[in-house]
Simulated scan of single mutants.
Amino acid sequence: MAITASQVNDLRKKTGAGMMDCKKALVEADGDMDQAIDFLRKKGQKVAAKRGDNEAKEGLIFAESKGDTGYIIQFNCETDFVAKNSDFQGFVKSIFETGIKAEVESVEELKTLKFNEKLSVEEKIIEQVGVIGEKLELSNFAKVTATSVIAYNHPGNQLATLVGLNKSGEEINDAGKQVAMQVAAMAPVALNKDGISQEVIDRELQVGKDQAIEEGKPADLADKIAQGRLNKFFKENTLLSQAFVRDNKLSVEKFLNSVESGLTVTEFKRFSLS
Rank of each mutant, 00 (worst) to 15 (best):
E170V: 05
K143D: 08
K111Y: 02
T98C: 14
I100H: 08
E103T: 05
Q74C: 08
V149Y: 01
N140L: 05
T147H: 08
L159V: 09
G169D: 05
Q158A: 09
K114W: 04
T98Y: 07
A151D: 08
N85M: 11
C77I: 13
A146D: 15
F91M: 07
L162T: 00
L162Y: 00
I72N: 00
V92S: 13
F96A: 12
F75R: 02
L113I: 04
E171T: 12
V149C: 12
L110N: 04
D87H: 15
L159A: 11
E103K: 06
S65A: 15
F81M: 11
N166A: 09
Q158G: 14
Q74A: 12
D80F: 04
K111P: 02
A146S: 15
F75V: 13
A83Y: 04
E78G: 09
L110V: 05
A175H: 03
E109C: 04
E127T: 12
V144H: 01
G133N: 09
N153T: 10
Q158N: 11
N140R: 11
K167M: 15
T69S: 13
A83D: 09
N166F: 09
N76K: 14
K167C: 11
S139R: 06
V82N: 10
T147K: 15
K84D: 10
Y152I: 00
K66W: 03
K143A: 11
N173Y: 00
F115M: 05
